Computed example of a mutant assay.
Amino acid sequence: MPNTPVRAASGAVQNSKRIQFTIHPDDFPEVYAMVLDGHCMEPWLHHDQKLVMSKTEAYKPGDIVALFIRPELLQPGQHQILLKRLKYAIAPWARFGADLHPKAELDPLVIVEQINPRRELVFRASQIQAIHKCLGPVPDDVETYVVTDDEAREIARRERARRGRPA
């Protein structure tokens, strides 16, 4: 499996068919849970495992991270979020995606790896919207819930309005 994606617990997978669903990484809560979809991070992490993610926690090489790929670069049926082990990241002050300086002559690289089979992947910063850190599996005693795609979009709309961004 080339890229182990992460699927949001938002009904993104229905009837064993992938439904393309994109959401801006800024619209996620500060800490949230996602479900791993795939086997390429085994034996560290497992298919259908619930993971705690943070959009504000600092990440460093060696951490497990979620890469948010710019939606316009995705092929039909491809996941927007990939879960990988970070090998090399751009400086924390650097920008991702369309936010790169228009006169920039260099496009910084982000290097990640998957475990099964072991493979290194290289992304240009212009291909990525954001990187969120994986804090580990959701503890067994923590209750989670599933939101529908419409509920996720409504939560995102309210979050954008709260921050004064267009809906």
Rank of each mutant, 00 (worst) to 15 (best):
L45G: 10
A91K: 13
V147T: 12
S126L: 11
L67H: 03
I81E: 10
E57F: 13
R85T: 09
M53A: 10
V110P: 07
V146E: 01
Q129M: 10
A9R: 13
A161D: 04
I131D: 03
L106E: 11
V52L: 15
R119Q: 15
R7Y: 11
N116F: 06
L73V: 10
G11T: 03
D149G: 11
I111Q: 09
R157A: 12
I23M: 09
P108E: 02
D107L: 04
A161Y: 01
R18Y: 04
W44Q: 14
L83C: 15
V110S: 02
K50F: 15
I111G: 06
N3A: 14
R158M: 13
A156T: 04
L121E: 12
N116W: 00
P92D: 11
L109G: 09
T144W: 02
E151A: 01
P5A: 11
L86Y: 04
T56K: 08
E57D: 14
F21A: 00
A156D: 03
K17P: 06
D63V: 02
Q49Y: 05
P76S: 08
N116K: 08
R7F: 09
M1G: 14
T148H: 02
N116C: 01
Y32N: 06
L86S: 09
T144C: 07
H47Q: 04
D107Q: 06
P2M: 12
S16F: 13
H132Q: 00
I64N: 10
E159Y: 06
Q20E: 06
W93V: 10
A8T: 13
I115Q: 03
R85I: 12
F28W: 13
S54K: 02
L45H: 04
E105G: 15
K84V: 09
P102Q: 11
H24V: 04
R165L: 12
S10A: 15
P166Y: 09
V142N: 09
A89F: 06
P29I: 05
A104M: 08
L73G: 13
E120G: 06
A125I: 05
R157E: 03
L83R: 05
I131N: 05
P166Q: 03
T4I: 08
V147W: 06
Q14S: 14
L51R: 06
M41Q: 15
H101K: 10
Y32P: 00
I81P: 05
A91L: 13
R163P: 06
V6C: 08
T144D: 07
D48N: 14
A9F: 07
D27H: 05
A156Q: 01
R165G: 01
A98E: 15
Q75K: 15
A125T: 03
L73S: 10
L135Y: 05
L106C: 00
E42C: 01
L121S: 14
E120K: 11
D63G: 09
P76K: 02
I90L: 15
M41S: 14
P108G: 02
I131F: 00
R153Y: 07
E154Q: 12
M41L: 15
R7G: 13
P139T: 03
Y32D: 05
K17G: 07
A104I: 07
D107G: 04
N15R: 14
P2G: 07
Q75F: 15
G136W: 03
L106K: 00
G77H: 05
L51F: 10
R160T: 05
D26R: 03
R18E: 08
P137Y: 07
